Simulated assay, not measured.
Amino acid sequence: MPLLCHNGRFADTLDPVLAGDNPSFKWGEGLFETMRMAAGEIPLMHLHWARLQQGLTRLGMNDAALQRSVLENILRELALRNECAAAGRLRLHLYREGAGLGFVAEAAPLAAADHGWNERGWSIEVFADARIAPDAYSSLKRANYLPYLLAARRAADTGVDECFLLNAQGNVCDAARGNVFVVRGGIVQTPPLSEGAIDGVLRRHLMSLLAAAGRPVQELGLTMEDLLEAEELFITNAVKGIRWVARFRQRTYAHAVCKELYGLLGQPFNNALVAP
C-alpha cells in the first residue's frame, strides 16, 4: 500500500487523516503544489517554494510555519518509501491549522506518458461550462480547483488529451493541466496572469530562459481566433514538461519551435523513458 505523509507522520493512503472541520475540506481554503522528482531531487524547487510563500501570504496564512529543508526531506523520504525517487510525481497540500499550517504529501511513480517528447501531439478542445474570473487569487494553485478538475474530466470523457479554460471575457486563460502558449509569426505568446492564468512554475522558468536568450515571451490576451490562427500551440506543466498540441477543432499545428524549447529546458524535462 502506498504511503502519504500527514504533518510529518507516514500513513497508508487509505487511512483517514483530516478532521471533519478541516477548512480546506469544508471550504477549499488551502494551496497545493505538484512537482516532479528526478534522481531524488525536485527540479525547480526554488520556484515551487517561492510560489507557495507568495500564496500563503496572499491568503493570510502563516508562511513561517514550515521550513523548506524539512519539507524537502519529507518529500524525498516519502518518494523513497513509495519507490518513486528515480522518477516520481509529488503533491503537497497545505491548509490552515490553528495559527499554523497542516500538510498532506503524496508521491507516486511518474506515468510513462510523462517521460520524454509527446511524439503524436495532443488533441485539445474547449471547456466552456465554467469560466475563470481573474482576481487577486486566480493565479494561485488553490485547493478549490473545481473548474480545472471538471475540464480534465471533460477531456477524458470526450476522448481528447486536454481542454482549454476560458475567462469571463471569453479569452483562453489556461488548460486543465497547464499553461497555454502559442507561436505566431515565430513569436512565443501566453496569456498574462491578469487574464486568470495560473502562475505556473514551468511557465515562469520557460519565460526566464527565453528572456535570457533575447527572445522574450509576449504576454497578451488570446482569443479563440488567435489560437486557430497560430502556427503552434503547446501546454507547460512542472510534472509533464512541454506538451505540443497537434489538433484543435479542425486545425492542425506544427511543432518546430516547441521542439526547440523542449530541448532548451534540459534535464529532466526532455529525457526519454529508458526501459528497465
Rank of each mutant, 00 (worst) to 15 (best):
S208R: 13
V183C: 00
G159K: 06
P192T: 00
C84L: 07
A86Y: 04
F248I: 06
C5V: 10
C5S: 10
G266F: 10
P109C: 09
L261G: 00
V70P: 10
E97N: 08
R153P: 05
F164I: 00
Q218Y: 05
R203P: 01
P192G: 00
A254T: 14
N271T: 12
P23G: 09
A246V: 00
T223E: 14
G20M: 10
A108I: 08
L146P: 06
V257E: 03
L209T: 11
E229C: 15
L140Q: 01
K141P: 06
N144Q: 13
S69C: 07
G200L: 07
S208Q: 15
L220E: 14
A275L: 14
L220W: 03
E72M: 14
H48R: 08
G28P: 06
Q189T: 00
W49V: 09
R153Y: 03
E72K: 12
R91M: 12
R249H: 09
P134Y: 02
L44V: 09
E106L: 13
S139P: 07
A50P: 12
M1N: 11
I242P: 01
H255A: 07
A64M: 11
R247E: 05
L165Y: 05
F164M: 03
H255Y: 07
M1P: 07
P2K: 13
Y262K: 01
P276Y: 09
V274M: 10
